[in-house]
Amino acid sequence: MDNEVHRGFETLAIHAGQEPDPATGAVVPPIYQVSTYKQDGIGGLRGGYEYSRSANPTRTALEVCLAEIEAGARGLAFASGLAAEDALIRTVCKPGDHVIIPNDAYGGTYRLFAKVAEPWGVSFDPVPLGDAAAVRAAIRPETKLIWVETPTNPLLGIADIAMLAGIAHDAGALLAVDNTFASPYLQRPLELGADVVVHSTTKYMGGHSDVVGGALIVADGGLGERLAFHQNAMGAVAGPFDAWLTLRGIKTLGVRMDRHCANAEKVVELLTRHPAVREVLYPGLPDHPGHEVAAKQMRAFGGMVSFRMDSEDAAVRVCERTKLFTLGESLGGVESLIEHPGRMTHASAAGSPLEVPGDLVRLSVGIEDADDLLRDLELALG
């Protein structure tokens, strides 16, 4: 796609990798639900397609779009966010290497490092990534990767991507940024110096709670080639229908994120003045410790809100009382969700340095009528 003509985010989201079908004029890429392809003689591939684990036209359309909206050299689509993370670790690390992760990382990421990567021989240290001195102190000669979430899940911590990119590159390491909570509409880590962007495309990219997927987008084409080799060799690729659903979701990402953010701000306003709520965690609040950095590197502050009650029992009661906020895991869909991270999404971190507070509630604020969401929370909070 000619970026001199198509450069706005919403334009890229709708058109990148999605030119009308030359045979039929169809404006939406077809679902190529196919495993193999006719070859024009031995080694004569049509468009480079031979077997759909290696490449599939629907997945190609998604991967091109992912690269464009994240301003990257190459995008790769996987069967899940954790499949994408695993491929990245196994591509850039080997036994004996070391990784720095956030001290409030997503529970699934922690589990991947603690239960899969570490037994394989890759060590890791959870570090407060907002503290540059702590990050530098944690670096070893064998550190190959600094892994960042910003905002983090579920405590909504903020890390300075440009600062961490400088620290990583000074140490000869790569910086990978999990951009799931922000989405490329709100934040583009590669433009801030990151080497790799990670997504659970299940969340805001897909946006409708109907598909599971993951993605890696890289700044360097050479790294993209190495990752593509592992993607094919390990095989955890996005299927064509999953790729098509994700691509459909991306088309409306910009308008959805505007509404997610606007609704979240109204929810935060309610929570901050409610006497039953002890603390609200949201980077849009001026007293949030990462507010200034978030304002610098994000377009807006996102649709995720966490808050703390006076006790774990109180937090659980709120989760059980909402009607419009559905009790469920995951996030980023058009519908609002509520969960208790300590017993649900982050149960795998229980007893570890990344254990989350029992009094914590996490909201994924959807795009419903804001007044309805506020009434639901007011009733649940009592």
Results as ranks from 00 to 15, higher is better:
D125S: 08
T150Q: 00
P119Q: 08
V135M: 09
A132N: 07
V135L: 11
A134P: 15
T143C: 09
P126M: 05
P128D: 07
D125Y: 05
A159T: 15
P128I: 05
A159I: 07
T150W: 05
L155M: 05
D125C: 08
P128G: 13
A132K: 06
T143W: 03
L129D: 02
K144W: 02
F124M: 01
E149A: 03
A138F: 01
L155A: 12
E149Y: 06
A138I: 06
E149G: 09
I146F: 11
P126L: 07
L129E: 00
P126S: 14
G157V: 00
P128W: 01
D160S: 07
R136V: 03
A133P: 14
L145E: 04
L145W: 00
A159R: 03
V127Y: 00
W147C: 08
D131M: 08
R140C: 09
T150K: 06
D125N: 07
W147T: 09
T152L: 15
F124P: 04
G157F: 06
P119M: 10
G157A: 09
L129G: 00
T150V: 00
V122R: 08
L145H: 07
D125I: 08
R136W: 10
R136Q: 11
D125F: 03
A132Q: 05
V127T: 14
D131A: 10
A138P: 01
S123N: 10
L156A: 10
L145K: 04
A138D: 04
T152K: 12
I139V: 15
K144R: 08
P151N: 07
K144V: 00
A132M: 03
R136N: 11
G130A: 15
T152C: 15
T143R: 06
P151S: 06
L145T: 03
I158W: 01
T150G: 00
V127P: 05
K144E: 09
P128H: 12
E142G: 01
N153H: 14
T152Q: 15
P126A: 14
P128T: 11
K144D: 02
V127R: 02
I139M: 12
W120C: 14
N153C: 15
K144M: 01
L156P: 11
I158D: 04
T150D: 02
V127N: 01
G121T: 10
D131W: 02
L129H: 03
V135Y: 10
D131V: 04
P128A: 14
A134T: 08
V135I: 12
